[in-house]
Amino acid sequence: MSKIYANAADALDGVLFDGMLIAAGGFGLCGIPELLIDAIRDAGTKDLTVASNNAGVDDFGLGVLLQTKQVKKMMSSYVGENAEFMRQYLAGELELEFNPQGTLAERMRAGGAGIPGFYTKTGVGTVIAEGKEVKIFDGEEYILERGIFADLAIVKAWKADTTGNLIFRKTARNFNPPAAMCGKICIVEVEEIVEPGTLDPDGIHLPGVYVHRIVQGTHEKRIEKVTTRKREEA
């Protein structure tokens, strides 16, 4: 059974429904599933809950789904670079569940690994701990965090083989593997699809068992903050 789809819209066919929970990979604008996000915008699916570290910028990445008001709730650690995100949240138009970044990553990883909850000291003594079960281990306080089990994971990888084995490139890996793991269905968009045997089996970052659908496309890969040094300083 082929996992390869012609484009992002085809890859999403039959999996979208209003009110669904989507886990998305990416950090800032780095390693984001930009083609799948645009296809979800075009599909018009509403009342989405999206677990993603942040929400891109106003007009790129998950920001486009905020502009179209398709998102009901975000589960994120950072909203700082997205004015529309902050505006909708402060105006009460958007629910926001703040998650510490490591807690969010671990919640995804745990969900993908069949772990419904885990204890962490991150957030103890802060608003993050409010309403959460507390347990003492070896004299230290920990809070219970839940694994995330998403209806759909949308991720971006560098290369896939046709069986879905993935490799990522540099810091574009970020949330993509844990997001992929926690989706009942995982759709990946890649820059290149290669034949099995092309990628080093010892160098696979995410095994194909986690990947259900693959689409290859051209990515804009916008840079959020270009920072450089002058050659004279070298």
Partner: peptide, 29 residues
């Protein structure tokens, strides 16, 4: 250096950076 920015290589402040001989990459979890 200017012109050598890589969109796949940023720091936690979303700034473009570079790698070193000792660099390793891994996922957020």
């Amino acid at each position: 250096y200017e012109g050598e920015e890589d969109p796949d290589l940023i720091n936690a402040g979303k700034q473009t950076i570079t790698e070193l001989a000792r660099t390793s990459y891994f996922d957020s979890a």
